[in-house]
Design a protein around this nucleic acid. Structure first.
Lengths: 215, 215
DNA sequence: GAATTAATTGAACGTTCGTTTTATTAGTAC
DNA sequence: GTACTAATAAAACGAACGTTCAATTAATTC
């Protein structure tokens, strides 16, 4: 047999990407075989090589597009306001929403970096660093205008990102907490962590407002 | 050739464990071959099977001992005091110290869970859950006596653990920050995050004391 | 409807994998 | 120094891996 009825390159490629993200997230990149992936798509292993020249190319493509999506999402969500509190709130909300929505892809991008060639690893890390720099800038601006009280902006940015991204480890949609509840909690924790002074009603306006934060 | 001069089972086993932690942390469990591990130890692959019946047994042993070490470390560090602030501070300090000291082993225990059989995975997760429960208890007690202000103790515990464990991702000893500085920062962030009311001089006594925490 | 292109199969390639078996030597006990 | 045990080497096992190649069929073009 050869070409199958109804076969379509675009659809097959999309199916490969989707199955690959799911399989790599579940089994790990090294543990997933090309034959396994092909079986999931309903195709022979050789067919995969029409779309991705090597297994590593497939991984890299998934990661690059994930990171591009993250940067693009933040670009779209970035508020016009200069207020660091508003900007930080937008960053947190975007980060949580994006990562919950793409749990599997995030897992792949975070866990499989070591399977990339040096050059490609650098490329992915560059995007990641750019994304993290956005948060550091917000924190630094906040400290400058007295909206935040932070020891070390670099360390705090890393701590916040680890905390927020960690949501994909334990959160399961449809369980005890809704996405909105989780987001609200992380927002509140973030604002306390950076010692935010409430300036607008960005978070839940029910909180006690106006006072600064102690150690 | 066969037995080599100066060969000693205990020393070889210890060398295997050490090399395995380092190699798995760097390459990943699936990507590390038994031949590679044997070469690192300076031995033939077949010799490894004298100490660990299968590759997965080796992985499981490393993980189990890591988790046992973590639980034992917390048992030793657990303060006598009933004060939630003191207990939380001890938990954070122990967690950070333990994880920085055993970066590679933590990496293995966190990243390679999917390579365990169902039964063994359950066993490791049970230990992990027990450790996390300690933090939830501290938080719940703190909320009860009014020392902490927390939305959801379960969610907050997970967020804190993710934040703290994340230190191994970016922290490198001997760089900009010392372990003491990092620990102090994480302690301060933690206390703010849970809305702690300062009751004793547990953290750095330089902090402004006495006042509660806003959103 | 013939020619061309797109999509896929089936079989095979050489390599590497985890593991087992057997033989051989170093250390230890008496 | 002989008997026994501990520790390893060397070679081999079948299975699985990523990848390639030639053949074959479906869709498209003219």
């Amino acid at each position: 047999m050869a070409r199958t009825t109804g076969s379509d390159g675009e659809k097959t490629e999309a199916a490969v990407r989707e199955a690959a993200v799911s399989l790599i997230a579940r089994l790990g990149y090294e543990a997933m075989s090309m034959r396994q992936l092909a079986a999931e798509v309903g195709v022979q292993a050789a067919a995969l090589y029409r779309y991705f020249p090597t297994k590593e190319d497939l991984l890299f493509t998934l990661m690059r597009e994930h990171m591009e999506g993250l940067l693009k999402a933040w670009d779209a969500a970035r508020p016009a306001s200069a207020d660091p509190v508003i900007r930080l709130a937008a960053y947190v909300e975007n980060h949580i929403a994006f990562h919950i929505e793409r749990r599997h892809a995030t897992h792949v991008s975070n866990m499989e970096l070591r399977s990339l060639s040096h050059e490609r690893l650098t490329q992915i890390l560059k995007m990641r660093t750019a994304y993290e720099k956005e948060l550091r800038t917000i924190l630094r601006d906040g400290v400058e205008v007295g909206a935040f009280e932070v020891d070390d902006t670099g360390l705090t940015a890393m701590a916040l990102i680890q905390m927020m991204t960690g949501v994909i480890v334990w959160f399961r949609p449809g369980e005890r907490l809704s996405i909105a509840e989780v987001t609200a909690s992380y927002l509140s924790m973030t604002m306390r962590l950076v010692g935010a002074t409430i300036s607008h009603g960005t978070a839940r306006p029910s909180g006690r407002a106006g006072d600064a934060v102690a150690l």
